[in-house]
Simulated assay, not measured.
Amino acid sequence: MSTSRVEAAILTAKRERKGALIGYLPVAFPDLDTSVDAAIAMARSGADVIEFGVPYSDPVMDGLVIQEATQTALKAGFKLSQLFEAITRVTAEVDAPVLVMTYWNPVVQYGVERFAKDLKAAGGAGLITPDITPDAAAEWIEVSERVGLDRVFLAAPTSTDERLRMISEQSTGFVYTVSTMGITGERSELDAAARVLTGRLRDAGDKLACVGIGISNAEQVASTLEYADGAIVGTVFVRALRDGGVDGLAAEVREIAQGTTS
């Protein structure tokens, strides 16, 4: 299988710096146009991969800052068509690949094949699916292979070695390596389990592992990239957009991106 755009972006970041910065934002927060401008600014300020989150009514993995942002989008009448519009507009302006972080129910309700084809047509690179595991994702695996989209599954510190092998085999782009058990949000110190889990994924055959949940500053990015291929940052970027607008977000991304070179 050829190298995907997400893999290529991470490998380029590893070659040119210490590794990749992956930035998360909810689509349509605080409104559609601003979220598009914010994603473009994020890419231009140092993010190698953009992660657009789909607002969802029951975000079991998300911390308070992201929950409040997605609720704002939902209350404003968010529709999945806005996701595809946003990706089309972002990918027309920047080269950074755009992944979609989504709970599985919206994809099923929309139709798995229809969702995949519309995502591909919009220029999207694939899906991060926090609440579906490879053994329950046969339809998505088949459709993503056929349409040409990455599928990023999550690995947790509690995953067995057998499950890690399955996740490694079925993920493309990278494996989303959960740094600590619990919801997303900033932590003053990253759980050492992230380093151990990344090592276990290497042993399971995984090529690229990016660590998320709890990374909130340049020092933590630099520390993460000592053992992982990418660092995923969400909550602090959403807060920066909420409090400082697109300019505030861009400044925060530039600051945190320094961790990819330090």
Rank of each mutant, 00 (worst) to 15 (best):
E169V: 10
I256D: 14
V108Y: 09
T91F: 00
T184Y: 03
D206M: 10
A47M: 01
V143L: 06
T224Y: 13
T129S: 10
G244A: 11
R242D: 06
E51R: 00
P130Y: 03
Y110L: 07
A231Y: 10
A204I: 09
A257M: 06
V211N: 09
T180A: 15
I141L: 15
R17I: 05
Q71S: 13
D31A: 12
L32M: 06
L127P: 05
Y24C: 00
L149W: 08
M42Q: 02
I232N: 09
S223W: 15
V147E: 01
K75I: 10
A251Q: 12
Y56D: 13
G126M: 05
G123R: 00
A251Y: 08
V27C: 04
L208Q: 07
P26S: 03
A192I: 09
A73F: 05
I66Y: 03
E219V: 14
S144W: 04
A69V: 05
S223Y: 15
M101C: 08
R200V: 13
G212D: 07
L11H: 04
A192F: 10
V175R: 01
I87A: 00
E226W: 08
L11Y: 04
V152M: 09
V49H: 05
T261L: 15
E85R: 03
E169F: 13
E219P: 07
Q67Y: 09
E113Q: 15
G230P: 11
I213W: 11
T70G: 14
F52S: 03
I22G: 04
S168E: 03
V196D: 14
E113L: 13
F52T: 02
F174L: 06
S179W: 04
E162K: 10
A231Q: 12
T160H: 11
R15A: 15
D62L: 06
E113G: 13
K79S: 03
Y103I: 07
I50F: 01
I215K: 07
D206Y: 05
D191C: 12
R200H: 13
A136G: 09
I40L: 02
F237W: 06
G23V: 01
A251V: 08
Y176M: 04
G111F: 13
L154D: 02
E252M: 14
A231C: 12
K79A: 03
A41G: 13
A125V: 02
K79H: 10
S57M: 09
V65A: 12
T12E: 15
V54W: 01
R151S: 05
I22K: 02
G111W: 12
F84Y: 01
P59E: 04
A39S: 11
I256M: 15
V49C: 07
I87Y: 00
V100T: 10
D95F: 02
L225C: 14
E16G: 04
G126A: 09
Y56W: 15
G245L: 02
Q258E: 14
T72L: 09
G234M: 11
I215Q: 11
G244K: 12
A9V: 05
P59A: 09
R17T: 07
V65T: 14
G111C: 12
